[in-house]
C-alpha cells in the first residue's frame, strides 16, 4: 500500500487492438512519451500527442485505470510523394493505474499544441480520529 502511494501512477502498456471497429486499415500505434510530476494542484501528466486534436482525443477512467487514446489525423494530401521520412503518422495509446488517493471526480485535462495535460488532484485525506477505549 505504501509502495502504491509512493508511485501514485504506474504505467501499463496495453497491447494495441488488432482490428478497428470501423474497418479501417490497421494503423501504427505509438506509446507517447510522458512526464509525471507533483504540482500544488496534484499530480500532473503530460503526454506528447502530435497531430491529435481535441475531437480525436479519448480519455477514459475505468475503475482506477486511466487510458488515453489519441487518433492522429493525417495532414498530408493523398497525391503527395514521399521524399524523406523520419517519423510515422499514427495513433497514441497508453494506460496508467491510478493510486487510490487520486480524486477521480476532479480530474481535468486539456490538449494544447499536441500536448495533453491531465491534472490528477489528490483526494483529501481523512483527519486522524482518536478512538476512545473504554473499560467496562
Amino acid at each position: 500500500m505504501a509502495e502504491e502511494t509512493q508511485t501514485a501512477v504506474n504505467s501499463e502498456i496495453e497491447s494495441p487492438p488488432n482490428e478497428r471497429p470501423d474497418g479501417a486499415k490497421e494503423r501504427v500505434i505509438f506509446t507517447p512519451p510522458v512526464d509525471i510530476y507533483d504540482s500544488p494542484e496534484g499530480l500532473v501528466l503530460l503526454a506528447d500527442l502530435p497531430g491529435v486534436s481535441t475531437g480525436s482525443m479519448e480519455l477514459q477512467i475505468q475503475d482506477n485505470k486511466l487510458t488515453l487514446l489519441g487518433r492522429c489525423q493525417s495532414v498530408i494530401p493523398p497525391e503527395a510523394r514521399l521524399l524523406h521520412k523520419e517519423y510515422d503518422e499514427g495513433d497514441f495509446l497508453r494506460s496508467f493505474i491510478l493510486s487510490e488517493d487520486v480524486d477521480h471526480e476532479r480530474i481535468t485535462a486539456r490538449l494544447n499544441n499536441g500536448v495533453l495535460e491531465v491534472v490528477l488532484p489528490r483526494a483529501p485525506r481523512a483527519a486522524p480520529r482518536k478512538i476512545e477505549v473504554k473499560s467496562e
Binding site: 498530408i76 494530401p77 510523394r81 514521399l82 521524399l83 499536441g114
Partner: peptide, 24 residues
C-alpha cells in the same frame, strides 16, 4: 536521429515539409 523529426513530400506545385513539434 535528429530533432525535430522531419518528413518531406513532393507535390506538383510545391514541396511540403512536416515536423512533429508537440508543445511548442
Amino acid at each position: 536521429r535528429q530533432y525535430p523529426p522531419i518528413n518531406l513530400y513532393e507535390l506538383p506545385e510545391e514541396y511540403l515539409l512536416t515536423s512533429e513539434l508537440p508543445g511548442i
